[in-house]
Design a protein around this nucleic acid. Structure first.
Length: 500
RNA sequence: GGCCCAUUCGUCUAUAGGUUAGGACAUCAGGUUUUCAUUCUGAAAAGAGGGGUUCGAUUCCCCUAUGGGCUACCA
C-alpha cells in the first residue's frame, strides 16, 4: 500500500484563520490516523500579495496547535523545496510538456482587450469566456502561424499560457470524498491561465505539479476549490498522472449575517478568528483558549464521530477521524459553545498547571503570590471560569483591597440597618485567635443565634464589605484567606463608607 | 447572468426508508447549597415548500425557494 501523504498549502498573505486551520487539522488527523505524512507547502506564486511575517505566523500557529509537519520549508524531506517560489525550474519542465503535447498554448491578448470584451458582453447580458468557442478569435498561438509565433516570442512580447480545455469527452464524473459523485460538463469550462506573464504558474498549475511531485495521495481543501476541481482533473489527465483523492471541506460561515468567515470578521463577532494575535488583533491564544480546546472546537466545526461525546483529545481525534463523517454543509461558528469547550478543559487541568498559568496571569497585575495561596483560590473559583483570565476576574479581591462598592447592591440590602449588623460582628472577630473558615462560620452562627439576626442579611453585608459587590466565593473562605487584619480593615472601611 | 455546492431545534449536529426525530451550547422555569458559585431537574425549540418512488419517507429522485461558493495574469 502506498504511504498516505497529505499537505496543507496556505499562501502567505496574512494570518491563518479558523477555516484554514481546520483544513490543516483535518489533513493532519487523516495523515496521523494512517501513519502518513503531513506536509506544509507555502503557496507564494503571487509575489504581489505576500505579506511579510505571515510565513512565520503560519509555522507558529501550527506549532501552537501541535500540528507539526513532517516536511516543511524548515524541515526538508525528499520533495523540496517547499516554497512554490523556489520551484520555478520544476514547473518549467511541465509547462513545456503541456505546450508540446498541445494541452496548452501561448496567449498574447492584452488584458485591456479581454476586459473590454467582458464589458461589452456583460452589457448585452452575456458573459465572455475564453474557451473553445472564442479561442480562435483571440490573439494566441492557435490563431497564428508558427512563424508568427516564434517571431513574437523572439521579440519578447508578453504572453500568458492557457490550458486548452479538451471538450471531446463532454461529461465526466468526479469523486469527492465528502460529497460523493459530481458530474461535470467540460463545455462550461474556460481556458484558464496556467502561467502568468511574469512566468510564474497560477495556483492551478503549481498545485497539480507539486501535489504530483510531492506524492500527495489526498488533497483536502476548502470548498472554494470545488469549482476548479474539473480543471485540476483535466490537468492531471493531460500530464498523464495518477489523480489523487479529493475532499472539499464545507465553509465556515460568519456567526451572524451572510457569507464565509473572513479575516476581517475578528473583533466584530467577539471571537478571534485568528489562532494567534496578528498586529493589533487578538488571537485565540492570547484570548485564553488552550490549544487542546481550540483544536477540539475547530474539529467539531463540520465533523463529528457520531456519538454524543464532545470533548476529544488530539489522539482521540486521530483515532476517530474520517472524511466520510465530514458534513457537506457549511457550519456557523458559535462562540458560546467554544467558551464552554474551553471551560471543560480548564476544569480538567491538573492544579499544578493552573497554578503556573495563574502566576503568569497575576504578573499582568504586578502581583506575586505563593503556590499554596493560589492553589486554594483556584480550587475555590475555577468552576466559574472559562479562561485563566476569568480566574482573576473571580478572585481579584483576594489580592487587592476593595474600596469601591456597587451602589445598586448597597441599596438593595438596606445600608443603615446593616451598619448595625456589621458593628455586631467586629468585636467577636477581633477576639479570634484561629481565623479559619470553620471557626469563623461558628462565630457567625453563634452571634446570629444569640442576637436573633438574619444570617443571609449578615452574609450579604460581609460580601459587600469584603468584595465590594454581591459576587464572590464563600465568605468564610475569603476571610480566612485575607486574614483577620485585612478582614477587619475592609469591614471598617465599608462602615465608614456607609456613614458618609 | 453562467457553472457548482448545500438545506434537521436560535447554533453545532445524530438518525445511512419504519424513532415519542436524540444530544450539546444558548434560552427559560424550578430544586439543592441559611452567603457566592458549582450542581440537579424540567420546559420550550427542527426535517424550506411542492411533486413523485414506496406499504412507509427527514432519509432516494425531480422541480421551486433560500443560502453559499466560483466566475482574476488571487489563492
Amino acid at each position: 500500500m502506498k504511504k498516505m501523504r497529505v499537505r496543507f498549502a496556505p499562501s502567505p498573505t496574512g494570518p491563518l484563520h479558523l477555516g484554514s486551520l481546520r483544513t490543516a487539522l483535518y489533513n493532519y488527523l487523516l495523515a496521523k490516523k494512517h501513519q502518513g505524512d503531513f506536509i506544509l507547502r507555502i503557496e507564494d506564486t503571487d509575489q504581489d500579495r505576500i505579506v511579510p511575517g505571515s510565513e512565520d505566523y503560519i509555522i507558529e500557529a501550527l506549532n501552537w496547535c501541535g500540528l507539526t509537519p513532517n516536511e516543511s520549508p524548515y524541515n526538508f524531506g525528499n520533495y523540496g523545496p517547499y516554497r512554490q517560489s523556489e520551484r520555478k525550474p520544476l514547473y518549467d519542465v511541465y509547462i513545456r510538456q503541456l505546450i508540446d503535447k498541445g494541452h496548452a498554448y501561448y496567449a498574447f491578448d492584452a488584458l485591456e482587450r479581454i476586459n473590454t470584451l467582458r464589458e461589452k458582453r456583460k452589457n448585452k447580458g452575456e458573459v465572455f469566456s475564453y474557451n473553445e468557442k472564442t479561442r480562435l478569435q483571440m490573439d494566441n498561438s492557435l490563431s497564428m502561424t508558427s512563424q508568427e509565433l516564434s517571431h513574437r516570442l523572439q521579440q519578447g512580447q508578453p504572453y500568458v499560457i492557457r490550458f486548452k480545455t479538451n471538450t471531446i469527452n463532454e461529461c465526466f464524473i468526479l469523486h469527492d470524498e465528502v460529497r460523493g459523485k459530481l458530474q461535470i460538463n467540460t463545455k462550461t469550462l474556460e481556458d484558464k491561465i496556467l502561467v502568468k506573464s511574469d512566468g510564474m504558474p497560477t495556483y492551478h498549475l503549481a498545485n497539480v505539479i507539486d501535489d504530483h511531485l510531492m506524492k500527495i495521495t489526498h488533497v483536502i481543501r476548502g470548498e472554494e476549490w470545488l469549482s476548479s476541481l474539473p480543471l485540476h482533473i483535466l490537468l492531471y489527465k493531460a500530464l498523464g498522472w495518477e489523480i489523487p483523492c479529493f475532499a472539499h471541506l464545507p465553509l465556515i460561515f460568519k456567526p451572524e449575517g451572510k457569507g464565509k468567515l473572513s479575516k476581517r470578521d475578528g473583533e466584530r463577532i467577539g471571537f478571534p478568528v485568528f489562532p494567534l494575535s496578528w498586529k493589533d488583533r487578538l488571537g485565540c491564544r492570547e484570548k485564553g483558549y488552550f490549544p487542546e480546546a481550540f483544536i477540539n472546537i475547530i474539529a467539531l466545526l463540520g465533523w463529528n464521530p457520531g456519538g454524543e461525546q464532545e470533548i476529544f483529545s488530539l489522539s482521540e481525534l486521530i483515532d476517530k477521524f474520517s472524511l466520510q463523517r465530514v458534513s457537506k454543509s457549511g457550519a456557523r461558528f458559535d462562540k458560546e459553545k467554544a467558551k464552554w469547550i474551553n471551560q471543560q478543559y480548564l476544569r480538567k487541568k491538573p492544579i499544578e498547571e493552573l497554578i503556573s498559568l495563574f502566576h503568569k496571569e497575576l504578573e499582568k497585575h504586578q502581583i506575586i503570590s505563593t503556590d499554596e495561596y493560589l492553589r486554594k483560590i483556584i480550587e475555590a473559583v475555577k468552576e466559574r471560569a472559562n479562561f485563566i483570565s476569568e480566574i482573576w476576574d473571580h478572585s481579584y479581591y483576594f489580592f487587592e483591597s476593595t474600596n469601591q462598592y456597587d451602589v445598586k447592591s448597597i441599596k438593595k440590602v438596606e445600608p443603615m440597618k446593616n451598619i448595625f449588623l456589621l458593628k455586631k460582628i467586629t468585636q467577636p472577630l477581633s477576639k479570634l485567635h484561629h481565623f479559619d473558615a470553620s471557626t469563623l462560620k461558628k462565630t457567625f452562627e453563634d452571634l446570629i443565634q444569640k442576637k436573633q439576626l438574619c444570617f443571609s442579611k449578615m452574609m450579604l453585608q460581609m460580601r459587600l464589605a469584603l468584595v465590594g459587590t454581591l459576587q464572590g466565593t464563600d465568605i468564610f473562605f475569603i476571610m480566612e484567606m485575607i486574614g483577620k487584619e485585612e478582614t477587619l480593615k475592609r469591614v471598617y472601611r465599608f462602615m465608614f463608607f456607609l456613614i458618609q
